[in-house]
């Protein structure tokens, strides 16, 4: 497996979208590839920090409403 694919599988597994076999393949690759190990470590850290931060986004409908409000106010 190439590093490019390993990186892709690692990304997918951050979103729980990697299958069992894909994760196995990734882990075997990680055994002998230190670059991908480093990437995986950072990637997991990033996922954790997103969990910890409890960051939210404004609901899409609210954004649409606000855009409309601004648009109306500007065309006055």
């Amino acid at each position: 497996m190439k590093c490019e694919e390993a990186g892709h599988l690692c990304d997918r597994s951050q979103y729980k979208e990697a299958s069992f076999w894909e994760k196995l393949k990734l882990n075997i690759h990680l055994l002998y590839c230190s670059a991908c190990r480093a990437y995986t470590k950072n990637n997991i850290k990033l996922s954790n920090v997103f969990k910890k931060s409890n960051l939210k986004t404004m609901p899409l409908n609210d954004k649409k409403d606000l855009k409309e409000i601004i648009h109306q106010e500007m065309s006055k």
């Binding site: 404004m58 609210d62 954004k63 606000l66 855009k67 601004i70 648009h71 500007m74």
Partner: peptide, 8 residues
């Protein structure tokens, strides 16, 4: 015009 996309 970009406020909502950039800062909301």
């Amino acid at each position: 015009n970009l406020w909502v996309d950039k800062y909301s």
